[in-house]
């Protein structure tokens, strides 16, 4: 036994290669739905359901499909723009609100802090769907229904963001903040020029997660938007699939278009995403 392990250590790690091949096969099978989606989006409609599956299209129709999706009756370009607007605004506001609250709940000592923090934290438990009805009624009264502003507002007060950033502020060495205080800096200056830069990686992590969650959000746009012109990508994709029921190549070109930007962001910000997820970041 020991002889054998010593021998394999010196030569090629066959075991590791075998596992890698096995996991690679598993990975490809796992991604088949995505591969099918991409390959279908390049096909002629008539070839979509050919069997055996043509993973590489026999006739390419990619340009036509994607042009139809981006400039057709439901122009994705327009919905992209809506989604980018809503997502960027939500992310920016949410990061500001959450980091401020996180600073307040960790660095500043004031009466009632503990109780208020518990109230905020307790709401994290509440399923969004449980309060959908009163939120909807409230939105109609306040005139926030069917507007991008209202949609942005809904995503701007994140308990998860506050909780996560608070943990990072608590982890800061108190001396940094104390010395700022001795220099006569008020809380606003300490927050902006000392505390926030120190937790920049955590802010980036939260910002990326919030971006992805908002980009992918279907439920809020579904309930709080009505006009076609205001639709986000997720709603538009659904609408598109309902309108073009028999145009599978087009539908797949639409879904590919909706997924690709997120994949790019994920690959670029992989480290942050995984860190945030490991922190317990389930959408919230």
């Amino acid at each position: 036994m020991t002889e054998q392990t010593a021998a394999t250590k010196r030569t090629v790690p066959f075991g590791k290669i075998a596992w890698t091949v096995l996991v690679a096969i598993l990975g490809i099978v796992f991604l088949l739905p995505f591969l099918w989606m991409v390959s279908t989006s390049f096909k002629l409609e008539a070839d979509v359901f050919n069997y055996p599956i043509e993973w590489i299209p026999s006739t390419w129709n990619a340009v036509q499909n994607y042009t139809d999706v981006w400039n057709g009756q439901y122009p994705f370009a327009h919905y992209y723009w809506n989604t980018i607007k809503v997502t960027l605004a939500t992310t920016a506001i949410s990061v500001c609100v959450s980091s401020m609250a996180a600073y307040g709940f960790s660095v500043i000592r004031f009466r009632g802090r503990g109780v208020l923090f518990m109230v905020v934290l307790a709401t994290y438990m509440v399923p969004a769907q449980a309060i959908l009805v009163p939120q909807f009624v409230l939105y109609r009264w306040l005139g926030l229904f069917d507007s991008h502003f209202g949609l942005v507002l809904l995503g701007s007060f994140s308990v998860f963001g506050t909780f996560m950033l608070r943990q990072f502020f608590l982890g800061l060495h108190p001396e940094y903040l104390e010395s700022a205080k001795l220099d006569g800096a008020g809380h606003i200056r300490t927050f902006v020029s000392i505390a926030l830069p120190l937790v920049k990686p955590a802010v980036a992590t939260y910002a990326i997660l919030r971006f992805i969650w908002t980009w992918n959000d279907y439920q809020n746009p579904l309930i709080f938007l009505r006009s076609d012109g205001l639709y986000t990508l997720q709603l538009a994709m659904r609408k598109f699939a309902d309108m073009y029921t028999q145009h599978y190549a087009l539908i797949m070109a639409g879904t590919v278009s909706a997924i690709v930007p997120l994949l790019v962001i994920f690959v670029v910000g992989q480290k942050q995403v995984i860190e945030g997820i490991s922190f317990g970041g389930v959408k919230g």
């Binding site: 609100v97 307040g104 000592r109 004031f110 802090r113 905020v120 509440v126 007060f157």
Partner: peptide
């Protein structure tokens, strides 16, 4: 200062959740 910093978050949570 404490209320100033947590204000927006608390107000949001209060109006849109509580």
């Amino acid at each position: 200062y404490g209320y100033l910093f947590i204000g927006p978050m608390f107000l949001g949570v209060f109006v849109f959740t509580v």
